[in-house]
Structure formats: C-alpha cells, structure tokens
Design a protein around this nucleic acid. Structure first.
Length: 293
DNA sequence: ATCCAGGATGTAT
DNA sequence: ATACATCATGGA
C-alpha cells in the first residue's frame, strides 16, 4: 500500500472534496461511512471516499487542508485527473462574468471542482440519470459495479471496479432491470455493445466541443443533455452546459432571454452568458440550487 | 393517490 | 423539423 497527502493550500482555488464528489457530477466514488449529503448536510466532515481506476483502489479524504490518500499505487496522477487538480479555480472564478446567481453559487462552495471521470463509467452514469434522482443514480452505479465489475482486494476488503464495456455488452435486459435501471436497461446494454465492438470509441471523437456532443448522441440513450454531461465531466469540455431541469428553471427565472426554445440554441446562449468556463458555472448553480436551505 | 426525478426514443404531424 | 405519448422505479 502507498499513501500520501496533497497540500490543498497549494491548489489554486483550493478543494472541497465532498462537494466535488457528492454534487451529482460523478457516481464512481463511494463514501465509506455510507452516508450522503442528505444525512449529513453540507460540509459533512472528512469522510473517506474510495474508487477503483485502472484496477487500482484509491481512498481519499480531506482533513486539515490536506487531501490524504491511500492506494494500491501512487494515487497522485489519478487524483490529479479525476479531481482536475490542475484547474486554476481562482482563474476560472475570475473569468466568470459578474452575475448575482453565479457569485452566490461560487461563494457557497469554494473549492468545488469539475471531475474528470473515466469515459465509460461517465457515459453509463448519465444514461442512467434520465428522470432519476441523484441518490438513486449512485445506487444504480454501485449495483452495476458489484454485479459485473472486477473485484479488487485492498486492506482486507473487496472493492469493485466499474464494469468495462465488454462486461455489460450482451447482459440480458432483465438482469439490468433487476438492478433498478428500468427502461434505461436496454440503453446501457446497447451502448456498451457499441463500445465493445469498437464502434464510436473515445478515440473516434472529434476534438472540438460541439462536434463531440453531436457524435456522442450516436450512443443509445444519449441525447444532447447526457452528451453535454459526458463532454463536461469526462472529456474536459469546460464550456459544455448540460440543460437539465434545474438549470432550465434557473434560465427561466434568471436568464429568460437565453431561452431560445431549442436545446442547442439555448445552450449556446447560456454558454455566451456564463463565459469560457460555462460548465463550471452550470455545475455550481446546479449544486447550489439543489442544496440551498 | 398523484407527482416528480440531472431525458431519450419512436411516432405522428 | 417539431409536438406528443411512452418509457420503470421509488420516494415524497
């Protein structure tokens, strides 16, 4: 086992691990105490979180201005990617236009970062997110990992990686429905099968944001909103603004002139309003609106 | 019981 | 191209 700590004070803009991992961007981390935002409220302490990446187990917690970690290998490169520790949050906030809602949201959760999730796990998570509460999306991804993912031993405990595409391709629809996926079950299987057969792999995707979003709708169960989530939370397109129910309500209330009636045009308008890191702004607004009071 | 949740798809117009 | 019904599931 290896262990270490990252000085949060040296990260521009700091870090809020709990908000980063529990704000509905990523469903690949499990909080070891089994509790959630709903149970602990915001700033719920320094719980350990764990995930499996590339077959390596990584545990992490934030304590006294340090990001402590224990892992089966050097976790620093993984944490840097998964938590986007190289993002200059100060510069991102600085580049955000003056706006009452954005300023309130940024001030509510200083240090929250956009995640850089593994592609397939992110894709499946947000296919499953359709008409589903955040808490239940966590349960669905955990169920998928425990049912189909590789088991990895660490500290005397068994951890499960998220399944690879070939581990979900061909799984009977009834099995996925039994995990609570509902009508999303065939979407997950069909998209996994595409990847397992080498079609529409991440390497096939364009470089630019908008063509990438369009290409991602080639998966089954992926429309523009889910595609935007993958763009933002896995592919690093920080300008992507997923238009979910929360942000649509916010647009209606705060930016009605940005409502163009169509997804792509409304998205472009709000992107223009929110600036080059519009995705960051969107995620802060989403988290803020879901948890205020 | 009725409504809703980080929507997408198939079909009819 | 746009409007509409339909799609599971569990919690409030």
């Amino acid at each position: 086992m290896e262990r270490g700590a990252i000085d949060v004070g040296e990260l521009p803009g700091g870090l809020d691990l709990q908000s980063t991992l529990e704000s509905g961007q990523t469903y690949g981390w499990r909080r070891e105490d089994g509790r959630t935002y709903a149970a602990t409220g915001l700033h719920g302490g320094s719980a350990w979180y764990r995930t499996v990446v590339d077959g390596e187990v990584v545990r992490a917690r934030q304590l006294d201005g340090a990001l402590e970690w224990e892992a089966t290998t050097d976790a620093v490169p993984y944490l840097t990617d998964l938590l986007r520790l190289d993002d200059d949050l100060d510069a991102i906030v600085e580049a955000t236009p003056e706006d009452p809602l954005l300023e309130t949201a940024y001030e509510a959760y200083p240090g929250m970062r956009i995640v850089g999730d593994p592609f397939f796990a992110c894709l499946v998570s947000f296919i499953c997110s359709a008409q589903m509460r955040v808490e239940r999306i966590f349960e669905m991804q955990r169920a998928l990992a425990e049912a189909y993912g590789d088991a990895v031993e660490f500290r005397g405990e068994t951890h499960h990686a998220f399944p690879r595409p070939e581990q979900l391709a061909g799984v009977p629809e009834s099995e996925l429905r039994d995990l609570g996926l509902g009508y999303r079950a065939p979407y997950v299987e069909a998209s996994a099968r595409l990847l397992a057969e080498g079609e529409l792999t991440p390497g096939d995707l364009p470089e630019e944001y908008e063509p990438t979003r369009e290409a991602l709708t080639g998966y089954v169960g992926v429309g523009q909103k889910v595609a935007d989530c993958v763009c933002l939370f896995s592919l690093g397109h920080l300008e992507a603004v997923p238009l979910d129910t929360w942000i649509r309500t916010a647009i209606a209330e705060h930016y009605p002139d940005c409502d163009r009636g169509r997804y792509d045009e409304t998205s472009a308008a709000i992107r223009e309003r929110f600036g080059p890191y519009a995705g960051y702004a969107q995620t802060y607004v989403f988290h803020y609106l879901r948890h205020r009071e």
